[in-house]
Each structure stands twice: as structure tokens, then as C-alpha cells.
Amino acid sequence: MAIEVGTKAPEFELRNQHGETVRLADFRGEKNVVLLFYPFAFTGVCTGELCALRDELPKFVNDDVQLLAVSNDAPFSLRVFAEQEGLEYPLLSDFWPHGEVSRAYGVFDEEKGCAVRGTFVIDKEGVVRWTVENGLADARDLNDYVKALGSL
């Protein structure tokens, strides 16, 4: 079960597609965070969602907001995926321990071995202010993220 609105967002430290460490705490007091979990790189719906974010990037990466996309892929796969699709925002690897952060947020599907489509808007104080979870085959609506960010 996904963590609820009003809950303190679980801290994490993951590597991005360039092998750099990214921590949720890095943005505390500085930026709101759109934390997006997706099943796997190179899959149809995931690629579509992440490219849609790329195409609207100024709404999700700016002085006030940071987009962080998390999957259970290895960092090397994420690097190739980012290069292939022109994704210039952080793709974080929750590969090992496998799904640890996805589990902390309640969006890991044990049967499938991957994260489901869960999104969390986290404010500058580290509190979850909005969340949505979609099934593996169902893309999310980016306009919902924009509305949630506008309410902060």
C-alpha cells in the first residue's frame, strides 16, 4: 500500500544514470520533488511517459521543482535508455537491494518484481502532498502533476 498524503517521505539514496548519488535530502528546503516510480526502461508505456515528461521538462525541473524518476533497472541500462531517448533528468536505479526504495514507498509489486506506476509530490519540507498510483499498463496524466505542484 502506497504511503499517504501528509506522511513524511521516506529518505533514500540512489545512483542516477551517470553513477552519481542522489538523495531526497539534497532537495530539502530548496525544491519540491516529483518522485515518479515506473516499472522498467525500454518498455512502451514507460518510454511514452518519460518522453512526455522530457517534452514538458521546464514544468518539472526548474528553480522550484525537481523530477526524479525511479525504476528497478541497473544504472547502466538507465544510462543507455536516457541517451537513446534524450532524457536529461535523473533516472534513479532502485536495483540493489532490489526494490528497497519502491517498497519503502509502497509501490513495489512483489509478484512482478518491479515498481508499479506510483507518483509522489513531496514539498520542500519532505512531506508527501499528493500521490497517484496507476496499474502497470496505465499511463499517468502529467497535467495532474502540474495541478498538484500549483497547490503547494
Rank of each mutant, 00 (worst) to 15 (best):
M1C: 14
A2F: 14
E4M: 04
V5F: 07
V5I: 04
A9K: 07
P10R: 11
E11F: 04
E13Y: 04
L14F: 07
R15D: 15
N16D: 12
Q17T: 02
Q17L: 14
Q17E: 09
E20V: 05
R23W: 01
R23C: 05
L24F: 08
A25V: 00
D26R: 00
D26T: 00
D26E: 05
F27N: 00
F27Q: 10
G29W: 03
K31S: 02
K31C: 08
V33K: 03
V34L: 06
Y38W: 08
P39V: 10
P39E: 03
P39S: 13
A41L: 14
A41P: 05
F42Y: 15
T47G: 06
T47H: 10
G48Y: 07
L50D: 07
C51P: 11
C51N: 12
L53D: 09
L53M: 06
R54D: 10
P58H: 06
F60A: 07
F60C: 00
V61R: 12
V65S: 02
V65G: 00
Q66E: 11
Q66L: 06
A69F: 09
V70T: 03
D73N: 14
P75Q: 03
P75M: 03
S77Q: 12
R79T: 08
R79M: 13
F81R: 07
F81E: 09
Q84H: 15
Q84C: 13
E88Q: 12
E88C: 15
Y89V: 13
Y89M: 11
P90H: 01
P90C: 03
L91V: 09
S93I: 13
D94M: 10
E100Y: 13
E100A: 14
R103T: 12
Y105C: 11
G106R: 11
V107A: 12
V107Y: 07
E110F: 15
E110M: 14
G113H: 09
G113N: 05
C114Y: 14
V116G: 15
V116Q: 14
G118E: 02
V121W: 07
V121T: 02
V121A: 05
K124Y: 08
E125P: 02
E125Q: 14
E125D: 05
E125W: 01
V127W: 07
V127Y: 12
V128H: 02
V128F: 08
R129C: 00
R129H: 01
E133H: 13
N134G: 15
N134V: 14
L136T: 00
R140T: 03
D141Y: 12
L142A: 02
N143H: 08
N143M: 12
V146M: 10
L149V: 07
S151C: 06
L152Q: 03
